[in-house]
């Protein structure tokens, strides 16, 4: 099915695929995103890919919105998914439990599992990064096992440290910056998801996958030191 196109003011066009959250639909978003990026259509300023759509933002002094719409439709028609590079999987080291994951035991009890089983389930699959939003660098992840689903805290914490990994309902996620929140915290990553002063301010991008890997506290600190002095290389599984 081809996309629907909608006018979003005098600087934006929305490209919409099927109205559902699925890996299949999100891969169409990714393909279209990469096609627009490659096309270098003059006047396109930036593109925000989301679960099932893209917001294409343009400069109306450079391109007329209706002309852009025609170009986008032509572009979509000519996408050859087989020629598009496969998404990457980014390895996220996490120290689980203890002071880094104060709710890990609750998540285990709630689901009649051992702490080790929760970690095993959380780390065994890879998660699609559907989109980034909410706060800078926050990934909306899909595909967590229902076996470790846990409701949010009734009273959200006022301060959650940067890098915290949590569960809310059947979603899992990572807090890129210190913020308040109600997610059940099960661990913490030493990686920086958002570094405004770094060469690459963001670690993740929509359409890629991530996989959590359990590390011990000592390992966490050594990775953190490397991240801080710039010597850490993020592991990418192709």
């Amino acid at each position: 099915m081809s996309a629907e196109y909608k006018i979003a003011g005098d600087r934006g066009i929305v490209v919409e695929f099927e109205n559902e959250i699925s890996e299949k639909v999100n891969s169409k978003v990714r393909n279209m995103f990469l096609a627009i990026e490659k096309s270098e259509i003059k006047g396109v300023e930036e593109v925000i890919p989301t679960y099932r759509s893209l917001l294409v933002l343009y400069d109306p002094l450079v391109i007329n919105g209706m002309d852009l719409l025609t170009e986008l439709k032509a572009l979509e028609k000519n996408i050859k998914p087989t020629e598009i590079e496969k998404p990457k999987t980014i390895e996220i080291p996490v120290v689980y439990g203890g002071k880094f994951g104060p709710d890990l035991e609750f998540v285990a009890q709630h689901n009649n599992l051992s702490v080790e089983e929760v970690i095993k389930i959380h780390t065994e699959r890879k998660y699609l990064i559907y989109m980034l939003g909410f706060t800078p660098g926050f990934p909306y992840l899909g595909g967590m096992s229902k076996k470790i689903a846990t409701p949010r805290l009734e009273n959200p914490r006022t301060k959650i440290p940067e890098g915290s990994v949590g569960i809310a309902g059947n979603q899992t996620g990572i807090y890129p910056i210190e913020s308040p929140g109600g997610w059940r915290l099960i661990g913490r990553t030493p990686l920086k998801l958002f570094d405004p002063y770094g060469k690459q301010p963001f670690l993740l991008q929509a359409g890629d996958y991530l996989k959590f890997v359990s590390v011990n506290e000592q390992h966490y600190h050594s990775i953190k030191a490397q991240v801080e002095n710039g010597s850490y290389t993020v592991k990418i599984i192709q």
Partner: peptide, 10 residues
């Protein structure tokens, strides 16, 4: 709606 991008002035 399923979350999507928000343009200025939306």
């Amino acid at each position: 709606i399923i979350s999507d991008g928000i343009p200025l002035g939306a």
